[in-house]
Simulated assay, not measured.
Amino acid sequence: MSTLRNLVPSTHSLFVFEAAARTLSFKSAARELNVTQPSVSHSIKMFEKHCGLALFVRDNRGVQLTEAGRQLYEEVRTSFRRLEQRLEAISDRGTKYITFAASTSLAAHWLAPQLYHFQQEHPDVKIKVVATDRDIEPDHEVDVTVWVRPRDFDRANTWFVCNEVVFPVCSPAYLLSHPTLTSVDDLLQHQLIHSSDAFRKRLGWAEWMELAGGNSTEIRTNIVFNDYQLTFQAAIAGEGISLGWSLTAQHLLRNRLLVRPLPIEIKTDRAFFLLVSEDPVKNKRSKLLVDWFLAKTAELRS
Rank of each mutant, 00 (worst) to 15 (best):
A21T: 01
H109D: 02
N226P: 00
T132M: 05
Q229D: 09
A19V: 03
L33N: 07
S277I: 08
V8F: 06
V281S: 14
R149N: 01
K96P: 01
E265R: 13
G214L: 03
V146G: 02
V184R: 04
P9C: 00
R58Y: 10
K27R: 14
V129F: 06
P168E: 04
V166C: 03
L14V: 05
R155S: 06
F272L: 07
F167S: 07
C51Q: 13
E75V: 10
R86E: 10
Q71M: 08
V148M: 13
R86T: 02
H12N: 02
F232V: 10
K284S: 13
A89F: 02
P123F: 11
Q37T: 15
T104H: 12
Y228A: 02
V144T: 03
G204V: 11
L203M: 14
S195E: 07
G52R: 01
N222T: 12
L187H: 04
A89W: 01
M209Y: 05
T180M: 07
A20F: 08
K96C: 02
S277C: 09
E32N: 03
S171E: 00
K96N: 08
R151I: 15
Q64W: 08
A237H: 04
D152W: 09
G62H: 09
G94I: 05
G238H: 04
R270Q: 12
E74R: 15
A249C: 14
S286G: 15
W205L: 06
H50E: 09
D154W: 03
L111N: 05
H50A: 14
D185P: 07
M46K: 13
P263D: 09
V40F: 09
R22L: 06
T78N: 05
M1K: 09
E141H: 13
I44V: 15
H109G: 02
G244I: 07
L87V: 05
M1G: 14
L187G: 00
L289V: 07
L274G: 14
A29H: 11
L111C: 07
E84D: 04
I98P: 07
S105I: 13
R86H: 11
R22Y: 06
T248S: 15
G214W: 07
L87G: 01
E137V: 15
H140G: 10
V76A: 12
V259I: 15
V142H: 05
S2M: 08
L55P: 08
L175G: 00
T78C: 04
L203T: 15
A198Q: 09
V76R: 03
Q120R: 14
L211A: 14
D185E: 04
V129E: 07
R93T: 10
Y228L: 06
N222R: 11
T104S: 13
H140S: 12
L176N: 10
C170I: 10
F26P: 01
Q119C: 10
H50Q: 13
V184I: 14
V224G: 02
F293E: 00
R81G: 01
I127V: 15
L83V: 08
L192T: 00
E18C: 02
A21C: 06
H117Y: 08
D135M: 04
K45L: 14
K27E: 06
Q120M: 11
S25C: 04
N157H: 10
A237L: 11
S103V: 01
L87H: 04
S183N: 05
T99F: 01
A271Y: 14
P123N: 10
G204E: 12
S196N: 03
L187P: 09
